[in-house]
Write a protein that binds this DNA or RNA. Structure first.
Lengths: 332, 332
DNA sequence: CGGCACAATGCTCACTTTGAGCATAAGTGA
DNA sequence: TCACTTATGCTCAAAGTGAGCATTGTGCCG
């Protein structure tokens, strides 16, 4: 029989293999229609990788993981967090940067959405456009230039293997993630694309390369980050892109009042695609997500737009996702 | 400046607060149209809570979290895992059962879907209908009887507070999760419902009650589990209910060939609701999820049904989720 | 001040996707 | 052969979507 102690590893007498646990945060804001992540300076990393995400170890003073995270972020960046959700727990032995001997080190990543870009009280903390790290993800201006450079390399990678089965599998993955060999682009597969590039050796983090990439390389495969933080960022973007489709989370990024077009720009910034304007406002309208204020924009060119605000009530109303699979009348 | 050591806690000299990390698995199968989870016997728990989920500590031999999990599950249950995905990492100080002094203990939970119910090589491992633990989640036979018992208690809980604001918030939550005070039932909010019951004191695990619940209580608020495993189970069900709507994961639970109605029964088992038969098959058909075989069922009453098989290719085809927010032509 | 360029809004229209049912087909058991 | 049961085919109306055209306010520029 399995004992509780055996299972949970709480045998006080012989504590079984403790691990070092870290907390990492992807803190997202959107200003001027650009998606940004909060970054901090990190010492002791390879050249060109001195920027990372706010992070810190979990310490016993933290009552919960999330509280611990908030504490670290406030300390490192002076940024208060509002909306926070757990992203993923990373634990690969060989992907976390330098290794702690015999100790597993795993990091619990969180996604946070914040409203305003504080001028950043600390020099070490700064907001960066996230497409700087993943340039191939931005389709707002059409197919990103970076992709043109990346694609042949990926195809070469798929072709370089002798094993035809493996080659086939690689091509399938390319089709699925990058939409090569027919296949459509799915903006949510951010992580899968990053991991594919990683495997294909196009990501400097892969080999722990210490040589800094050239500016040209950076424009194509993006700016590297400390540790495996680019992977964490990719995870966050993918998750967020999925979530905005069925939960009104974008509003966490908006100021108290805004125009429908600003809202659209924000969604576009996150998803990396452009949307049909009229249909976008129809969608927002019929879902009852916003209500008009009596303010309008002014100053800019063109007809002034009405300012709206998010209807907090919808958080209670929305029957929520509710996709297909609607229940039958009651055939039982 | 934040140093790498500071951030990641990898300072070999003074290792900062290691934690005990556990792995937990919710292993799901569906046989005879019932959703089941694999459970194991757990020693040293309060009366009536001797059943838990397969789990074990993370040890350094495990190259990745997932591999560690697979190892534990195979050892404890002799069950091989196929589809596995990470669920959530639980880390509340006060919810994990007995505490390790000064050590954070957190558990990384996984969801696994398996095809067949092995007769279970070990007596300690057995498959249990998951609604045994969460009886209020099963709407297949209409509104579950358990809900009728639960609702007045929840309303009382909302009413028992003096603070009108708090009362209001509680009622909002009831509406959102249980569909009380108007509000619709959303089958995905499994965890939120469990947590609400927990807070309302209707869940024995809450106070670490050692007194065993009466059979009548169990029929209403469900069979308790060891540790916080019922919470983990609730998380898994909610996640799975969401996922089947936009990814063809149900097929991981199906035998090589099956009828459309068996497929429907499986989906219904997971989601806890009934579906319109004709529309269900239309959906499956037009999405091209299955292909016909030349077999048909026999023996049972009624017209024999055609056996179909899952089209593995769709894993490569499906433009995937792809909900709303379709991109514009290219207005840029 | 009239005309322009530009963005915000209104509204149309064809085409799919759903929710619900009716009608038939094809076995089993009495 | 009839009664019953489940599988399948099809129809229909109501919503939901993807694309565009048309109009309305504003700031700017002769």
């Amino acid at each position: 029989m399995t004992t509780a102690k055996d299972m949970q590893g709480r045998d006080g007498a012989a504590l079984p293999n403790p691990s070092a646990v870290g907390l990492v945060a992807v803190i997202v804001a959107a200003t001027d229609g650009e998606p940004r992540a909060l970054t901090v300076q990190v010492e002791g990393q390879a050249a060109g990788r001195s920027v990372g995400l706010p992070a810190g170890p979990l310490v016993p003073e933290h009552p919960t993981l999330e509280r611990g995270l908030r504490a670290w972020v406030e300390r490192q960046t002076h940024q208060r967090l509002g909306y926070v959700e757990q992203l993923y727990t990373f634990g690969d032995r060989d992907r976390q940067g330098d290794e702690a001997q015999g100790l597993h080190s795993l990091s619990v990543a969180y996604l946070a959405l914040v409203r305003e870009v504080r001028p950043a009280g600390l020099a070490e903390a700064s907001w960066r456009n996230w497409y700087r790290y993943l340039p191939w993800e931005d389709f707002r201006e059409g197919r990103p230039a970076a992709l043109a450079e990346i694609e042949p390399k990926l195809l070469a990678w798929a072709g370089e293997t002798g094993d035809p089965k493996l080659k086939r599998r690689r091509e399938d993955r390319l089709s699925l993630t990058f939409g090569l060999c027919d296949g459509a682009w799915n903006e949510e597969r951010v992580l899968e694309r990053y991991e594919l590039l990683f495997e294909a050796g196009l990501i400097p983090e892969a080999q722990g390369q210490s040589g800094s990439a050239s500016p040209a390389d950076i424009a194509v495969t993006g700016q590297p980050m400390a540790f495996d933080h680019r992977r964490v960022l990719a995870t966050a973007i993918g998750r967020l892109r999925g979530k905005i489709k069925y939960r009104p989370v974008v509003f966490e990024l908006m100021p108290p009042t805004f125009t429908l077009f600003q809202l659209q720009r924000t969604v576009e910034a996150l998803s990396g695609t452009n949307l049909h304007k009229q249909n976008f406002r129809r969608l927002v309208a019929q879902q009852g997500l916003v209500e008009e204020t009596d303010g309008v924009t002014s100053g800019a060119t063109g007809r002034p737009a009405r300012l709206v605000r998010f209807r907090r009530e919808v958080l209670l109303e929305r029957p929520a996702p509710g996709f297909r699979l609607r229940p039958a009348k009651r055939p039982a």
